[in-house]
Design a protein around this nucleic acid. Sequence first.
RNA 1: GCCGGGGUGGCGGAAUGGCAGACGCAACGGACUUAAAAUCCGUUGGAGGGAAACUUCCGUGAGGGUUCGAGUCCCUCUCCCGGCACCA
Length: 836
Amino acid sequence: MEYDFAKVEKKWQKYWEKKNLFSASSDKEKPKTYILIEFPYPSGEGLHVGHCRSYSALDAVARKKRMEGYNVLYPIGWDAFGLPTENYALKTGVHPKIATEKNIANFKKSLKSLGISFDWNREINTTDPKYYKWTQWIFLQFFKKGLAYQAEIPINWCPSCKIGLANEEVVEGKCERCESEVKREKRKQWMLKITKYADRLIEDLNGLNYLEKIKAQQINWIGKSYGTEIDFKVENCENIIKVFTTRTDTIFGVTAVVLAPEHPLVASLLRIQNSELRIKNYGEVKTYIEQSKEKSEFERTQLAKEKTGIELKGIRAINPLNSERVPVWVGDYVVGTYGGGAVMVVPAHDYRDYDFAKKYGLKIREVVAGGNISQEAFTDYGVLINSGKFNQLSSQEAQEKITDWLEKKGSGRKKIQYKLRDWVFSRQHYWGEPIPIVYCRRCWENQSLIKSGTKSRLNYDYTIIKGKEYMIVPVPEKDLPVELPYVEKYQPTGTGESPLANLKEWVNVNCPKCGGPAKRETDTMPNWAGSNWYFMRYTDPENENSLANQEKLKYWMPVDWYNGGMEHTTLHLLYSRFCYKFLYDIGIAPTKEPYQKRTAHGMVLAEDGRKMSKSFGNVINPEKIIKAYGADTLRIYEMFMGPFDQTIAWNAQGVKGCYRFLQRVWELVLDWSKDKNKTSSSKVIKAVHQLNKKINDDLEKAKFNTPIAAFMEFINFALRNKKGIGRDAIERMLKLLAPFAPHLTEELWERIGNSPSIFSHSYPQYDKKCTLAEEITLIVQIDGKLRARLKLPFNLTEDKIKEKILTDRRVQNFLAGKKIKKTIFLVNRLINLVTR
RNA sequence: GCCGGGGUGGCGGAAUGGCAGACGCAACGGACUUAAAAUCCGUUGGAGGGAAACUUCCGUGAGGGUUCGAGUCCCUCUCCCGGCACCA
């Protein structure tokens, strides 16, 4: 009778594998369901209980769907390029390729012992050249459509390690490894034009079943705002400063214009020597700009809450509304990459400008009535004052009228701005997909010979390396993949280039276009490149002619349910939606959106409430749990521990509770099987159908903890009503439990004399009639307070019930000396006698 | 500061506007045992009354409101968590 989970689990895992029970079929007649979990990064740490939470829960969904007759795709693969493996290689000398293979083997072993019903025939690996051939192919399509381009942008630079750092390697403004201050250094980077898709990325969220908070976070991140671009002419020259504002109504309150240090006008003004436009405090300005350029993002945003700036003395900008001359400043609190990097300063009606004006003694002019500007900025809407002919208008009216006026004069226009920036697609690392681009000097010379008036666009068609022009030549599709060469040293080059730059024999190639000497791009792609489209590859993982067959994509896409971490909402989720939309535009992807439904699981913390980490020594190893209690216990616990989307701390005692529960199931079923000829009592039938309903309803809503509780209740009930349990109840219960505790239920299914597998049997549907009892408990309230509970037959009328309850002793007590003024009656549920 | 989501026993948490605290853990009492572990049975929000079956009052962060009735809806405040953050 002892439940030997180790033996049982191994037995069924072998059985499933042998029968190939969970591989998605190619039968396109069947309705499909595509269930997806974020494929893991196979780290050296091994499988985490957090992975198990997501995989177990969605496994229950997948298994249930299969029993319901769907053709289910529930695949797994490896997102295996990335920094930790490269760092590990640097430290230990173990090649990333070897380390990755080892880690994958380790993960695979753990996952198999959990018995997740993945379709292992479709396993993919982003570091496999057969896979990244298509990652590179997608990049080439971006390039061809002009959505991949180069730009000089500042990266995180560690002056001591002499390498570029990823954002996650910068901790509080310092290099993670050597703790020196991270600086900003401009480097040429590949960029993807995600901004072109900003609107669609917002709008198309509409039809999708994403957790509301996920939609909100994405919309927030894209940060669309409607405003006006206003031209401020610079006095005595042709230059124009374009500022972006959402508060056109405050334009009469402008007392200065502030430029970001990166603003192109600043550099060009510094170059001008003509006396009219000479910056009087040239030296100071130059120093200020150089200092702020050196500042890291962290210093500029986190540390420098105190605004700094410097006036460009001698330079004035002209307010187009009232022709007023206002001073021009440079301040590094102005974001260079947003809204053109220039703002109009309206101290009376903006907190930031108020601070800035107070600090540097700028004028504060009130133009919207309603606040007390001697105390603080007034940022609400109001009625305009000191605004010439726009006085007396409300802010909203004024915004329209002033924008109209500006548009007529040609000195302003409506504009939409986004916070979203283009995606930096270059990494100066070894362990990533090589970018399939070659730089050719001869092609440049050829084209300049042929066409003297060249139309090539800088950063799209040609680039400049060390002062010389080179054509950007894409590697022909037939030559893909550009394989990542095997190197012995992954040490940084010290120049900010990737370690690939040291491999002369790899870097130097013949130009695929002209055959001349050319050089390869040595940057690699970011982590997100491989995960951008992996869910498409699962539909046809072996395809050598395209990233996936069209018919297969059409059948399987979109993903019906995608679950992953909340931390991927703004990066992976947004990037992959963008990539998919692009592939839709060029006729590869069959739908506008890749994921129909998106949920997120909460983190699993250690018992002490902190993050699990080797350094805290509080890591829970799933394999150890499996050894001690079995995979089914681990699965059940992970689902039972709390609401699926919530962060939750591990509790070792809670695991034991789940183990006890499964043992009771075991005991109940085997005990029952000693005498199988019982028939179910009506109480039992009712209970098991109610259980059935509960499971169906809750799984739809991504609730996994309450179904487990319902099973526990049922088992407690069943152990007390053993006599009334028939085969129908036992079988129904086992089928319902099977998606949650697959090994245990397979074994019991077989032991009670059924043929395996339980998963090839159909999922039970509940009968609504059976969920209703012939007897109900009626709640009796007097003035809204519970005063009695009565067991009554089903469907009694109000009058009959009233008659009955008025004879109840307690009810009589509470009604003594009172008159019933009103009665609220809900059939089979409640009666409320109101005396007030 | 802005945008989300929350605050319910000793703990994790349940509750289509209608029985607050399901289920699990822990704790306590008992059974089994030489003993412990495991297992099983019972008790367990707080305060009061009763010999007892039982029974009364209070109770879901604070205050107000809507309603016959509020953990649930509305307003104000407060604290916690997540995201964004000088985005004009």
